[in-house]
Design a protein around this nucleic acid. Structure first.
Lengths: 330, 330
DNA sequence: TTGAGAAGAGAAAACCTTTTCTCATGCAGT
DNA sequence: ACTGCATGAGAAAAGGTTTTCTCTTCTCAA
């Protein structure tokens, strides 16, 4: 079913058919309607390849990611797709692990296929993907990964998220707030920790470790085994750690949230909701981040100006039961 | 950079340039080499749109999925991508939730873009996607979701997986093996349960519930609170349930694996490895399933014959510490 | 009645590549 | 010296769409 068939069926020329369908050109209203009707009847759908060849727009973008497990990329992906599907743009998913060669293959394949733009995404916002995207013939947007010079980069505002968490704990009347978090070499860990410090002061130490339940467990052990007053709240670097913390507290007979409030980070639904009690957590808004990334790369593809630099998107607090308290009163 | 530029730079015609690059046609060896060299130098890459327009092959396939969370789709996706990247095929990812309208939009977009085939994937193999793919002009392969009449469907062999688990427990000397699993209306639940019955007999009941840690927890409670002998092994319907089971047993002072062996299902790395002790689990081989799906849709796209029907791919046992015992001796 | 202008519709080029067909050259064989 | 053939290379069409340009016809005003 090509436009030839439409033209033939409608008894007009190809150009007239094209103009009718695209609402361009001049022609009689009834001619236009007739062509459209016939096109609908025979189920004509324009060949995007041919169209793209001419218009230099493929209505396709590529998503490059090294987050194989997908915990971060998946919401980003969902947001991108959601934002772009209305604009007729489809998304190539390229999972490249940390393999530069594989990354290059995928980038080349995308360029061959004339993508209108590329979104680079990762699992860590202080690391670059193992492939250089700085001088590609198409626009590139970095989402949740370190970008190159003069590029557009979207990331979550971890400091604001951490403040949100600690201020929430403070508002609930908690005074001794500890922070158990991931490896200090993560930029986001340092950023969250210093925001925590700003709000909570330095009554309690920051405990750096790994992103694992076992670390949360262990850290609680080391705090509770030491002499002196115990914290009445714990702000955790992610939900896995929070889960370990909650479990460890329960095993020690410390009640959550009555005795100690716990806040997680990531709002990883499947984990946060299954913890007993369900975790109050900070959501980085990755889906919104994805949506923004999609709209941004689209804008760039269409030649609309976008000012380069890092744009931080706000986190939000998701209240469940691990802190006590109700939803944020604002 | 088009082939025109190559031809001009090499001082030959477009056709000669094309033939040189594709190793077709007849020409002097040195002409061929010169064209290739120059193409490489100026960084020529053929436009896949133009190529696809002519060849009727876009080297693109679509992956349609309603598994938003991605626990199942992600490994499948990784497998597909891995299998196809060598063949120069890129993958459109279409997340359609359970929205028929959205599904139709994505299908239309893919057809417009002339995909060579579509892989349909889901989160449940006894449910169909909310969109009809049975009479599309391109081949369709179903992976981990219910397919239509006369189609090619790939799924895991859950019965075999369940047998693997129960036989492993038996081999370790366990005699009273219970089965705590998900909702009975899942086909895979019934399939696993009847395979369990075949091997384990009916000394212990099958406990149907929901896919949640809390259910595993609760089920252990109901078993241990009843009078009479307790199981010495529990085969769980998924890793979340297994996690709840292990936690509940620990809370009751029952040692895992010394007193009771526990086997999970899904081998959901992030969960299985973080459980204490780490879970022995059944891996459905979703990545291999994805790889097979990719190769199959490619075969169909190239016109190679593939016999329709359901193909079950084997599961495998991943031994960690929740059962005791070493790796399968086989 | 003639001229200008607009309206409606079609022809053709363009996008980039592949492929088939044709043409020209040179060489070997008679 | 002429025929036949192989070799090398180019011209042109094809794929489906959009867009610019051209052409015809009609209406209205002078």
């Amino acid at each position: 079913m090509t436009i030839h068939d439409v033209a033939a069926a409608a008894g007009v020329s190809i150009s007239t058919a094209s103009k009718a369908l695209n609402n361009t050109g001049r022609m009689g209203a009834e001619t236009r309607e007739r062509v459209k009707r016939i096109a609908g009847e025979i189920g004509f759908r324009p060949n995007a390849l041919a169209r793209g060849l001419l218009s230099k727009r493929s209505f396709t973008i590529g998503l490059l990611t090294n987050d194989t497990y997908g915990r971060f990329t998946l919401p980003v992906m969902a947001g991108i797709s959601e934002a772009l599907v209305d604009h007729g743009v489809s998304v190539f998913l390229c999972a490249i692990e940390d393999d530069p060669a594989l990354g290059q293959i995928h980038v080349d394949a995308m360029l061959d296929k004339q993508v209108d733009g590329i979104i680079a995404s990762g699992k860590r916002l202080d690391r670059r993907l193992p492939v250089d995207l700085s001088s590609l013939p198409v626009p590139v947007v970095y989402a949740f990964t370190e970008g190159s010079e003069n590029s557009v980069t979207l990331r979550s505002d971890d400091a604001q998220g951490a403040r949100l968490a600690v201020e929430w704990l403070a508002k609930l009347g908690r005074r001794r707030i500890a922070h158990i978090t991931g490896p200090e070499d993560f930029f986001s860990v340092r950023e969250r920790a210093s925001a925590y410090r700003e709000v909570a002061g330095d009554a309690e130490p920051v405990l750096y470790g790994i992103w694992a339940e076992s670390w949360g467990h262990e850290a609680v052990g080391s705090i509770w085994d030491r002499p002196g007053e115990k914290p009445d709240a714990i702000f955790c670097g992610n939900d896995q750690i929070a889960r370990g913390v909650v479990d460890a507290l329960r095993e020690r007979g410390v009640r959550v949230p009555e005795d100690v409030s716990v806040v997680g980070f990531d709002n990883w639904e499947i984990l946060a909701a299954q913890t007993r009690p369900p975790l109050t957590s900070i959501d980085m808004g990755l889906k919104e981040l994805g949506r923004e990334a999609g709209l941004t790369v689209l804008a760039l593809a269409e030649g609309r100006p976008v000012e380069p630099g890092v744009r931080k998107l706000p986190c939000r607090l998701v209240v469940r039961q691990s802190c006590g308290g109700m939803s944020p009163t604002e």
